[in-house]
Nucleic acid binder design. Structure first.
Lengths: 96, 96
DNA sequence: ATAGAGTAGTTTATAATATAAACCAAATGA
DNA sequence: TCATTTGGTTTATATTATAAACTACTCTAT
């Protein structure tokens, strides 16, 4: 079994954590993701943008209680990419 | 269950492939690893050095049929680090 | 009303990483 | 003999991740 390449968009601790989280909750706010991942706001902002550029998540901006609110949602492509990533990764980590 | 940090030495496709390979075969030559991973020689050279610096592999240089030969072997620390990495990674990729 | 602190981010600069290109030394083959 | 090949290493460059600085508000207390 060959070692397939790992999607570089997902092979990043923070982006993987974000996608992993969104896979299970479907939708989450910036601040919540920040809390769950312990990322700095700047880093999270950049990485969310990359996930959006890759088409793996959607970002919706609104206001909640007068404050800006950024809501993230996983896309079909994101779920698909995650599944493929996990499949490929198994080849690296499963005992032979 | 919290998302533990992933060892940055192992969270690199090529280094992970190298360690994964060495875990299963115990010992391998530079050229063999290069063939299995499709890495360029330069990249592999650098990454092997990093794994050595981290104490995850041993590198032994000798000559075989007049040509230089670089043999790599996993260390106890390498096995331990890989196990921990896999454990932590499971939190990211396993379905919740 | 306004100064100070806090919220929710983005942008930009820097540090770290990965990768490729160039190079080296010796061996082999035409 | 000189061009190629083998088996690498070193160095330069592109990519990534991260932190620091900044923007644009809001809230609270005076």
């Amino acid at each position: 079994m060959p070692l397939n390449d790992l999607d570089p968009i997902l092979h990043s601790q923070l982006r993987l954590a974000v996608v992993s989280l969104l896979i299970s909750v479907k939708e989450a706010e910036f601040t919540h993701i920040r809390g769950q991942t312990n990322a700095t706001a700047g880093n999270l902002s950049v990485q969310l943008q990359k996930l959006k550029d890759a088409g793996y998540i959607e970002i919706e901006k609104s206001f909640k209680d007068n404050y800006p609110q950024t809501t993230c949602r996983i896309t079909k492509a994101g779920i698909q990419a995650f599944d493929t990533y996990v499949q490929n990764l198994q080849q690296y980590i499963k005992p032979k």
